Computed example of a mutant assay.
Amino acid sequence: MYLTRVAVTARQGELHMVPVWRSLLHFGVKAQEWGVNIDAQEKQESLHLDLMCKDELEPEQLRAELRASVPTALSVEISRPPSVVVG
């Protein structure tokens, strides 16, 4: 399994968590850590997740699913640190 980092950003009041979690359940990933940031000055909210994913999960698949679940998202960022692999 691989660590995958996800950040979903939307305008304040438009980041709905339930659709995000439903999308993640669809892929069978496990959340390791997560957090929510609110930038009142920029009027944005961000959900940051560290996920354990199967190696065949393509970042573009995940990005497309999250984009579909949160159409108001300003950005969906996905990264996979190269050195983090769990047996």
Rank of each mutant, 00 (worst) to 15 (best):
D50G: 00
L49H: 02
S46M: 05
Q61W: 00
N37H: 03
H48Y: 04
S69C: 11
A31W: 14
S46K: 06
V70T: 11
M52S: 03
H48F: 04
P59W: 04
L57I: 09
Q44C: 07
K30D: 12
Q41P: 03
T72Y: 11
L66E: 09
G35F: 13
Q44M: 07
G28Q: 10
E42L: 13
E60G: 01
A64Y: 00
E56V: 05
A64K: 05
S46C: 05
I38A: 03
K54R: 05
E33P: 12
A40I: 09
L25H: 15
A73L: 11
R63G: 01
V29G: 12
K30Y: 14
A31P: 15
R63A: 05
E60S: 06
K43V: 14
Q41C: 12
K54C: 01
F27Y: 10
Q41N: 14
A64R: 02
E60H: 06
L62E: 04
L62G: 03
L49V: 02
V70K: 09
L25E: 14
D50F: 00
Q41W: 15
L47R: 01
L57C: 08
L47M: 06
E42A: 14
A64I: 00
V70R: 11
L62P: 01
Q41Y: 15
D55K: 07
W34T: 15
E33R: 15
S69L: 05
V29I: 12
A68C: 04
E42W: 13
P59E: 09
E60R: 08
P59T: 07
H48G: 00
T72K: 14
N37A: 02
E45T: 08
D39P: 00
A68I: 01
E60Q: 06
L25M: 14
